[in-house]
Design a protein around this nucleic acid. Sequence first.
DNA 1: CAGTGGTCTAGACCACAAG
DNA 2: TTGTGGTCTAGACCACTGG
Lengths: 228, 228
Amino acid sequence: MIKDSIKEKIASGMWEFRKPIPSEAELCRIFDVSPGTVKRALQELVNEGYLYRRQGIGSFVARPNFENSLYRFFRYDVGKDKSRPVPRSKVLISEVIEAPEDVCKHLMIEKGSLVVHIRRVRLFDEIPLVYEDLYLPHELFEGMEKKDISEKLLYPIYEQEFKVLVVSADEYLNAATANEEQAQYLGIGECSPLIEITRIARTFGEEPVEYRRSFGRGDRFRYHVRIR
Amino acid sequence: MIKDSIKEKIASGMWEFRKPIPSEAELCRIFDVSPGTVKRALQELVNEGYLYRRQGIGSFVARPNFENSLYRFFRYDVGKDKSRPVPRSKVLISEVIEAPEDVCKHLMIEKGSLVVHIRRVRLFDEIPLVYEDLYLPHELFEGMEKKDISEKLLYPIYEQEFKVLVVSADEYLNAATANEEQAQYLGIGECSPLIEITRIARTFGEEPVEYRRSFGRGDRFRYHVRIR
DNA sequence: CAGTGGTCTAGACCACAAG
DNA sequence: TTGTGGTCTAGACCACTGG
């Protein structure tokens, strides 16, 4: 199955993001298969989100867009212009601590390891929508706790300053109700509905590099499933 | 695009469920295209959930499995045997009423039309997990309010007794908190987290035939998204 | 056995982008 | 104009199913 060979090369980071992978004709030669087979394999990888292709230009390794994740989950229809500004953050905690047990488990690190812990509130158009805790392995993110992240997205920082590229993630949604602190920071009543989103973000080889628990305002949350 | 022609025949109900559609070779003749094209079209329809195929037997029109929907959303890991019994229902209300405004909108019926309204609690292994309201156009479901549905699934009843076949649906998830009645029936505290699932179920031609608002216990809810 | 789908061959022809 | 992907051709060969 040449599809799996291609997928491995993508997963291993052998082909760079935003640069074209070998053309169909070259892949035919490389793997010694017919054009139809290469076309089919590439199309399937597009469907699975690993590639995107542009007629006349080439095929490229796709990157997951995590900001879309938030926008997928939350109705963010305040204001009608389509521009999506970087959400601001209000940092409540930024520290290095010994990892709690559940964090160790999800990040697959030794008990007692150090992690960077960040707690923040994310504001969209100045409206607080999400309260979240993040945990990063200290080994990979030494110094992260000193960065100013109030106006920035995290994943570009991971990539540029710590050479950690997030390529996939698992998210789990739960229902919850706001505790006192969450209610206060999100400007809602205690016991208001919240959506809890737990994310384990991974780099190449499925290695977990971030564990995140986000609590979003339930009145702004919406998720759509088409059954068919 | 022969794929769209095939999709239309499926959506129109021209080919029956569980009976094979014409074979690849026949489709080649019918549409006057080459085998490869037919194979590709059929494979894409499988990916989109319209068909399933069995080597050596044929290609069949798929039906959405709605029970899977609930089981997808709720952790139902009480007991370890994999058998999934039909959930029991405790019917609280079963009546014919004038449709409230939002129901008219979602069912796309005239203001003032009659609908069958059913309110019930669904029990899984005797544990109440879901509290829900259903609205059905009275025109299509005359007499539905008199049926005993406590031990049965609804969609087979729609199909067998009312000749209404549900073929697709849209579901919207929201976070909510339990009101007094919901809390009582679900055996949880008031203000406990709930997941609200709004479903619009459709028959052929996208015609809405059921509007349903379900409230599931938040502590049993879980949804998983893989980002990539 | 005949008939089905599953995978692959070895291209042709077109639309589109960049130089 | 050259090179790219998008769609389709016209099958071959195999594995599997049912009678």
